[in-house]
C-alpha cells in the first residue's frame, strides 16, 4: 500500500473504532435507563447519552497506562477504558457480580487493571485525586498522564482551583477535561457562571486551555492528542473545555423541565456525535451500511448479555457489609 493509502486505511480503522465505542456507550446507557424504569436499578443513575464523543475521543488519544478519573456520570468512561459492560451493569443493579460487588453503585466503580480510578460522587472532589494520580506519575518518573474529568458545575467548586495551582506549580502531567454539557444539575451555565468559557479558567495559573467541539469525536481526538503530549513531555497541566450536551436529565429522576424539548431535539438532530460520524464513515467509504448494521447487532447483543448478567447475578451476601472496611 502507498503511504497515502495506509494513512487512509488507518483513519478508516480509527473512525470505525470511534463509532463502535460511542455506540456501545449509547446502547449501554439506553438499556440502563430502561432497567431503571423497570425498577431494576435504584438510587442514582446519571446517563452519558449525548456526550459520548468526549470520552471516546480522549481515550483514543491516550496510551496504555494513562489514568482516568471522573465524577458520577461515569458509565461511559468505564466502557471507554475497556471495563466489562456486564460488570458495570451488574453494579448498577447492585449485584455481587458488579465491579464493586454491589457496594459502590453507579457512581463508585474502579479498575486498577484498566487504570480507571472512579467514579466519585462529590462534585469536584475527584479533581484533587486526579491531580494526585499525576503527582504519583511524576514522582515515579514514568511518563503516564492523568485524565481528570469534571463538569461545568464542578468548575465552580473551590478544590478545583487548589488543584490547578498545585498541578501548575509542580508541572504535573494532568489533562483537566471539563465536560461542559451546559447544565449544572438544573441550572444553565449562563445562570450559574460569570465567565462561561471554562477553558479560560486556567489563565491565572498559567495553564493553557482550549475550547473543543465535544460533539465531534475527531475534534476531541485531535485536541486530546495535543493535550496529552503536552503533559507527557513534562510541560505541566492542560485544560480542555469540551462543549457538549446531555440529552437526558441530570439523573434519571430529573425530568429536565428547565430547558425546552426543542432545544434537546435540535441537538439530537443536528449535532448528534454518533449520527454525525455515521454519515462521515459512509461518505468516506470507511464502512458500508451492511457493516454498520452488523456492528449495531453485535453491540446490541453485548448490551443484552450485560443486562441479562446484571439481572441474573446474585444479590450480595449480607456479610459483605463487614468486609473491605479495613485491610
Amino acid at each position: 500500500m502507498s503511504k497515502t493509502a495506509t494513512a487512509a486505511s488507518q483513519n478508516a480503522a480509527l473512525l470505525n473504532q470511534f463509532y463502535r465505542d460511542m455506540l456501545l456507550i449509547r446502547r449501554f446507557e439506553e438499556r440502563a435507563g430502561q432497567l431503571y424504569g423497570m425498577g431494576l436499578i435504584g438510587g442514582f443513575c446519571h446517563l452519558y447519552i449525548g456526550q459520548e464523543a468526549v470520552v471516546v475521543g480522549m481515550q483514543a488519544a491516550t496510551e496504555p497506562g494513562d489514568q482516568v478519573i471522573t465524577a458520577y456520570r461515569d458509565h461511559g468512561h468505564m466502557l471507554a477504558c475497556g471495563m466489562e459492560p456486564a460488570g458495570v451493569m451488574a453494579e448498577l443493579t447492585g449485584r455481587s457480580g458488579g465491579y464493586s460487588k454491589g457496594k459502590g453503585g453507579s457512581m463508585h466503580m474502579f479498575s486498577r487493571e484498566k487504570n480507571f480510578y472512579g467514579g466519585h460522587g462529590i462534585v469536584g472532589a475527584q479533581v484533587p485525586l486526579g491531580t494526585g494520580l499525576a503527582f504519583a506519575n511524576r514522582y515515579r518518573g514514568n511518563d503516564r498522564v492523568s485524565l481528570t474529568y469534571f463538569g461545568d458545575g464542578a468548575a465552580n467548586q473551590g478544590q478545583v482551583y487548589e488543584s490547578f495551582n498545585m498541578a501548575a506549580v509542580w508541572k504535573l502531567p494532568v489533562v483537566y477535561v471539563i465536560e461542559n454539557n451546559q447544565y449544572a444539575m438544573g441550572t444553565a451555565i449562563s445562570r450559574s457562571t460569570s465567565e462561561t468559557h471554562l477553558y479560560k479558567r486556567g489563565v491565572s495559573f498559567n495553564i493553557p486551555g482550549e475550547e473543543v467541539d465535544g460533539m465531534d469525536v475527531e475534534a476531541v481526538y485531535a485536541a486530546g492528542r495535543k493535550a496529552v503530549e503536552h503533559c507527557r513531555a513534562g510541560n505541566g497541566p492542560y485544560i480542555l473545555e469540551m462543549r457538549t450536551y446531555r440529552y437526558r436529565g441530570h439523573s434519571m429522576s430529573d425530568p429536565a423541565k428547565y430547558r425546552t424539548k426543542e432545544e434537546v431535539q435540535e441537538m439530537r438532530e443536528k449535532h448528534d456525535p454518533i449520527e454525525g460520524l455515521r454519515t462521515k464513515i459512509l461518505a468516506a467509504g470507511a464502512a458500508d451500511e451492511a457493516a454498520l448494521k452488523a456492528l449495531d447487532k453485535e453491540i446490541k447483543d453485548t448490551v443484552s448479555a450485560a443486562a441479562e448478567f446484571a439481572q441474573m447475578s446474585p444479590e450480595p451476601d449480607p456479610k459483605e457489609l463487614w468486609t473491605e472496611i479495613y485491610a
Binding site: Q67, I69, F110, Y117, A125, V127, P128, L129, G130, T131, G132, L133, A134, F135, A136, Y139, G158, Q159, E162, S163, N165, M166, V169
Partner: peptide, 21 residues
C-alpha cells in the same frame, strides 16, 4: 512543601495512595 491548600494536599495524597504510594 506545599501551597496552603488543604483540600489539594489531602486530595492529591489520596490520589497518589490509590496508585499504591
Amino acid at each position: 512543601s506545599t501551597p496552603i491548600s488543604e483540600q489539594a494536599i489531602v486530595g492529591a495524597a489520596v490520589g497518589a495512595a490509590i496508585t499504591g504510594m
